[in-house]
Design a binder for these strands. Structure first.
Length: 142
RNA sequence: CCAGACGGCCGGAUGGCCGCCGUCGCGGCCCUGAGCGCGCGGCGGAGGAAAGUCCGGGCUCCACGGAAGCACGGAGCCGGGUAACACCCGGCGGGGGCGACCCCAGGGAAAGUGCCACAGAGAGGAGACCGCUCGCCCGGGGCCGCGAGGCCGGCGAGCAAGGGUGAAAGGGUGCGGUAAGAGCGCACCGCGCACCCGGCAACGGGGGCGGCAUGGCAAACCCCUCCGGGAGCAAGACCAAGUAGGGGCGGCGCAGGGGCGGUCGCAAGACCGUUUCCGGGUUGGUUUCCGGGCCUGCCGCCCGGGUCGGUCGCGCGAGGCGCCCGGCGACGGGCGUCCCAGAUGAAUGGCCAUCGCGUGGGCCGCAAAGCCCGCGACAGAACCCGGCUUACAGGCCGUCUGGCGUU
RNA sequence: CGGAGCGUGGCGCAGCCUGGUAGCGCACUUGACUGGGGGUCAAGGGGUCGGCGGUUCGAAUCCGCCCGCUCCGA
């Protein structure tokens, strides 16, 4: 699976408008289906946001780096193909232990990804596939 | 040993696993190119402030006459350094500190205008409230005294020492002088003027003259001297793609298509020729005047619209380090050596281990040592450089000052 | 990258240019009018003038440096 970076402002706005979102102590995750994307083999694109509320430039860059590290750790195994994600840093992103940050992201991915298909009635086949894969992954974790 | 002053420097170290950006090499892939979003390996990869964006430059484009003036903004003791500066160095003057040392926007107030609230008599060629001194009050203003006289009051003249107001009262202190006083005179200090000496200069020193005229504020207006053309790497250049044979206005021109006419041909078409038409004005009339009219072309301006991709700029520089020489120093010169970030939703990270430093807590209310747990400053290059300013855990080195103790 | 503005009682604003007294409205407290509320009237309390320096006898005001906020242009 290839993970690309979301770079255009309009992409961020589109994801924010159409997204399933989920908030954890360490981060906020938004997800939306990529337009004109093949569900099974499309790429995954991830955008990172750290607003001025996080702190100065050093704090913002560090927050995005921790989020990138967490994404590289979690996404390849459990991300939904053909989806755009936006990961938003929160105040606790800097201080939260890295394992907890990974847990936040994995939990968010499970909930947001599982519900992504419900919003698009014409894609029930893919939604079913997602559910079955999520169920299998949870069984594997257990 | 304690307290302090100044200058310089560092901004944890080592290793492992997984990653990021650039570059080089080898390989891989395809749609063979502005190739790649692929794999492996080597090398490089944030700061002293990268920050704030307060100054000064380089660079690029625009304007232009290598000009001057006005306006506006800035600089402002002297000399030096520098590409330049509001920076730096060395001096001078003033202020503070026992001292090392620190601080100062530090030109002009005898060019002009303005301001100096309240208080106070008076706030700028000033003034007299309480005062000080003298004279007079007419055969005598009041009171006391035997009297000389004293005290009080009124009027006139002189004065500004003392009191008082204020941030500031028109030189200060002392002596002389005087009815009382006053630079009225003298000495010293301050101020001013010219001279002499030292210094490149700011300025310092000296003796002399003047005899107070010249209060403060220019971070009030202002005057004087000097400096400044404008914009900024989103500068600017190129490539690709695309609206698009876009629209409007003006000019050039009558070239091509088109139109019209003719020849050939069944036809498609080919060839030749031609460049105009309509309305109005004026006139005896016209090739003249005015207005309007098919498409394309070339030039200029404007509008609308599109793109917001890539490459260059963009990393050899007022460059770093070492040594030598000149200089009190800032700095300059020479030689050697090194190549040292280049991203663009923006690269140095995530996790772990060991060691070191500081600090908080606990074991542990004698101390030392040890062990365990936790925490670690300000802050991220965005075209580049020289400064300034601001932020900063902790630590190191050197020089110097004051005090205490010991010899 | 370039430029402009703002910060004053709890809130919204004057005062700053031209330096000496910080004022207005709402709100707050007390009292009166009313049976009570509202409302009106009268009296009153409350401000490091964003921070630190400097100039001045004296600074909210003038100058410099910081902090925070807002806006504009490319």
């Amino acid at each position: 699976m290839r993970i690309a970076t979301l770079k255009k402002r309009c992409d961020f706005l589109r994801v924010r408008a159409a997204a399933r979102r989920w908030a954890a102590p360490g981060l906020v995750l938004q997800a939306a289906p990529m337009p004109d994307a093949d569900a099974e083999e499309g790429p995954v694109r991830v955008g990172y946001t750290a607003s001025r509320r996080i702190g100065n430039a050093v704090a913002r860059n560090r927050a995005k780096r921790r989020l990138r590290a967490a994404v590289a750790h979690v996404m390849p195994a459990s991300a939904q193909c053909g989806c755009d994600y936006v990961v938003i840093a929160r105040a606790a992103t800097l201080t939260r232990p890295f394992d907890a940050l990974i847990g936040d992201l994995a939990a968010g991915l499970a909930r947001v990804g599982a519900r992504a298909g419900d919003r698009a009635p014409g894609r029930s086949r893919r939604a079913a596939a997602v559910r079955s894969r999520e169920a299998g992954r949870r069984a594997g974790d257990a």
